[in-house]
């Protein structure tokens, strides 16, 4: 892999991360982030917000051939900012406005003018909350770790 490719992979990884966090954010977090922006960029829809479903694939025995497990809702949207940046938004929620804001933030994250501001007001708070949620859950789960003792049977 040459350095240009490495850069590209890094860029993709960063974008993957923020798109995933935007998907997991609550609508309230996104709206709050949006309201904090003083000079809001203008944008138009390339794909108006819509809700549909995706089929979740699982594997037989967890590792074997794939099969269709069941569906999940998904909302998505695509926008173009006035300065040309295109953003895509996705969420498993049944919530078009969520997809719209996620798309706008994805576009803004690609724009160096907005990036650091969106990172601090939207992306990182969501990342922190997700991390906190996981660690609280992990602590509770750890308290139920059990070690069963096998009792020797009388006739042995």
């Amino acid at each position: 892999m040459n350095s240009a490719e490495q850069m590209k992979t890094m860029d993709i990884e960063r974008r993957r991360r923020w798109i995933g966090l935007l998907a997991k954010a609550t609508l309230q977090e996104l709206e709050q982030g949006w309201s904090q922006i003083e000079s809001k960029p203008e944008y138009t829809f390339i794909r108006v917000p819509e809700t549909g479903q995706i089929m979740i694939r699982a594997r037989t025995g967890g590792v074997g051939p794939q099969f269709n497990l069941g569906e999940m809702t998904m909302s998505r949207c695509a926008v173009r900012l006035a300065n040309g940046y295109i953003g895509f938004g996705y969420t498993a929620k049944h919530q078009k406005r969520h997809a719209e804001l996620a798309a706008v933030f994805d576009a803004m994250m690609q724009d160096p003018v907005y990036r650091s501001m969106i990172e601090t007001t939207v992306i990182e708070p969501v990342a922190d909350r997700e991390q906190h949620k996981r660690s609280v859950s992990a602590t509770k789960i750890a308290s139920t770790n059990v070690d069963f003792f096998t009792l020797v049977r009388g006739d042995d």
Partner: peptide, 15 residues
């Protein structure tokens, strides 16, 4: 992958 900035919009009101 969509990188083309000429990408057109779809229906304004798809339904």
């Amino acid at each position: 992958m969509v990188s083309n900035t000429e990408m057109i919009k779809g229906f304004d009101n798809p339904e």
